[in-house]
Amino acid sequence: MLRLPPLRYLRPTSVEAAAEAVAEHPGAMLIAGGTDLVPNLKRRQFDAPVLVSLRGIAGFDGIQGEPGRGMVIGAGATLDQVATHPALQTAYRALAQAAGFVSTPQIRHMGTIGGNLLVDPRCNYYNQSAAWRQAVGYCLKRDGDICLVARSSPRCWAVSSSDSAPVALALGAELTLRGAEGERRGAAADLYRDDGIVYTTKRADDVIVGIHLPAAPAMTSAYWKLRRRGSFDFPVLGAAVALDWADGMVRVARGALGAAGSRPVEVSHLLTPLVGRRPDDELIAQVAEAAEKPARPLDNTDFSHYWRKRMTRVLIERALRDACGLDPLAGRLTAQTRSGQAA
């Protein structure tokens, strides 16, 4: 049996006390659902002499508001709550989809939306046991000197593997963080750093308290996830898009890619050709082809990066078509469009 290392377990009853507990204990980590942290700790991917549980905090999991004025999701809401919430399913569909695509029903009953936003970037040289990592000589992210995916790289290329993170960017969500030094609110996009190790701007004692979704009276959105199996698997690529409409035309287009780098990769600037238009097959195909550029898949997840890179445009096209109410699978792009070799 794989076991956790000995550690202390604290259960504060308020967010303030949780933040203080982390600030007080060097190396302490916050734990909510534990579905990412516990396996990583069992594999000794990091040390946590003290865990501070957020599960004893009341009122941390509410989902409030309505789409016309915006909604707030308590960070302790389970992924299952988010996936099955009627208002989220309609007005912020991509988020409900993303939550519903995470791993398994079991994990969705345990894992929280706050925790999913903070999934430790993954790499198949890193999400391994201590003995395995010893066998390959360790890596930059823990105990090693080099990144085994890109050996000459000065940085870690672990992959942002959250389903909800790209959606949060696409929806223009904001987050409230409360730490020992007080509370602050900012764009979800500002939470992430492009580094596989120090992947957020959050301080250790900062607790994500709430996820604020802007008013979305006329928004459609979609999240498409690429993975081997219909459950269990982390995304090897995720495409989140959100379109705000006015008079049948796209008013604002936002999008982000998951599992395409060490943080969710913003592609909104590449979707601007959609603005002011009524997107058709051709326009969507063109935009999707352009929007794949920022994706930088490396050979450190399931599937080859050859394939993942080529899938990017197809997935973006499908997500966009989905958000436009078109048959997602009837798009024009194939992986080989550019080379013109495919049937």
């Binding site: 794989l2 579905t35 396996p39 549980s53």
Partner: peptide
Amino acid sequence: GCELGECSTCGILVDGKPFLSCLALPLD
């Protein structure tokens, strides 16, 4: 079967909902 949340062989119900006992800590 894995103790890492990757197979759900250790499933139990908590308040009637499917949970993984391998990832759950007792105080919670």
